[in-house]
């Protein structure tokens, strides 16, 4: 049953008139609406205000307002904050790209497989997503740890190395963790997009003489672009705002915006400055996503 015909739309919305006029239905909405207004919209507005507060050494902020929190962050002499912002974006783009090229074949296989293990494989993709991020990072710590991790201690045991290979507390460790944790977020939208492509289109392409590879490039991939778009945006946004992974796998050696913000807030107690940094991150990320969506939508004409 479609929802587009006026008759049915009407039946849902106000067809049996008294439903809408019945104020009691508002009781379904008001508790949640109240919760979201009071504890989501208002706190975010409050945070914007906070980023314009005067800093203070004794309290979390002082009376009065200023724009210097933003100035200090952007026009820092060493470009310290902008460099961290740049690193954050590099991590975001890199993780997104790796997740896409690793996740695409997996999503395609899962979408098209006729194996009776399809449900199990689906559970494999899903389950890391449902296990806490701390647990998964901890798994990597056990494997990668520089002195006594699984890899280093095993290699040392067999005399292959003398001391250790630095596998974490560096960019490699953080990158690995990011790709691992966010890969399911790429696979799931891709899976949905590929499943919605009629397999007959692939057969049509092959019947017209295109090889499997050509079919993938010319037919499947373009049609899966909505999934690609959703997956890449999701992974990018999650990466640039991730906190646990850089802390646990990067330690103090890898600093990105979110770790910097939490450091400013919890360790340095510089709330206005931390709020300003958080907004610089949000605006940069938001603009990046906006232009990306604008750019990619050019390639999605004719696809719903």
């Amino acid at each position: 049953m479609t929802t587009s015909t006026p008759a049915i739309e009407d039946a849902r919305g106000q067809g049996t008139g008294s439903w809408l006029r019945d104020n009691r239905t508002l009781l379904l909405l008001l508790p949640t609406l109240g919760l979201f207004l009071a504890f989501l919209l208002f706190p975010y507005l409050n945070m914007i205000v906070m980023s314009f507060r005067n800093p203070s050494t004794s309290q979390v902020f002082a009376p009065g307002y200023t724009v210097f929190n933003y100035f200090d962050a952007i026009f820092d002499e060493d470009l310290y904050y902008l460099e961290i912002l740049w690193d954050t974006m590099v991590f975001g783009v890199g993780t997104t790209f790796l997740c896409l090229i690793i996740g695409y074949p997996v999503a395609y296989h899962l979408a098209r497989t006729k194996s009776r293990f399809q449900n199990l494989l689906y559970a494999f993709v899903l389950s890391p997503l449902l296990v806490g991020v701390v647990v998964r990072c901890y798994g990597w710590i056990i494997i990668l740890a520089n002195q006594d991790g699984l890899i280093n201690s095993t290699l040392r045991k067999y005399g292959i190395i003398e001391s250790f290979i630095p596998l974490m507390y560096n960019t490699f460790g953080v990158g690995l963790g990011l790709v691992h944790i966010f890969l399911p977020f790429m696979i799931l939208p891709l899976l949905g997009a590929i499943q919605s492509i009629d397999p007959a289109l692939e057969e049509a392409s092959q019947s017209l003489g295109a090889s499997r590879t050509k079919t993938m490039i010319r037919v499947v991939f373009p049609l899966s672009l909505p999934g690609v778009q959703a997956g890449t945006v999701l992974v990018f946004v999650l990466t640039i705002s991730s906190y646990v992974i850089p802390i646990l796998l990067g330690g103090l050696n890898v600093m990105i915006m979110s770790t910097l913000v939490v450091q400013q807030l919890l360790d340095a107690m510089l709330w206005p400055f931390g709020a300003a940094l958080a907004f610089i991150l949000s605006v940069t990320g938001g603009l990046a996503v906006y232009f990306y969506l604008k750019f990619t939508s050019h390639f999605m004409k004719g696809i719903a």
């Binding site: 989501l40 208002f42 706190p43 945070m47 709020a275």
Partner: peptide, 14 residues
């Protein structure tokens, strides 16, 4: 849609 850490910070301030 909003980063979880930002929501956490906003609530902390609030």
């Amino acid at each position: 849609l909003l980063p979880e850490i930002l929501t956490a910070i906003a609530l902390l301030f609030f």
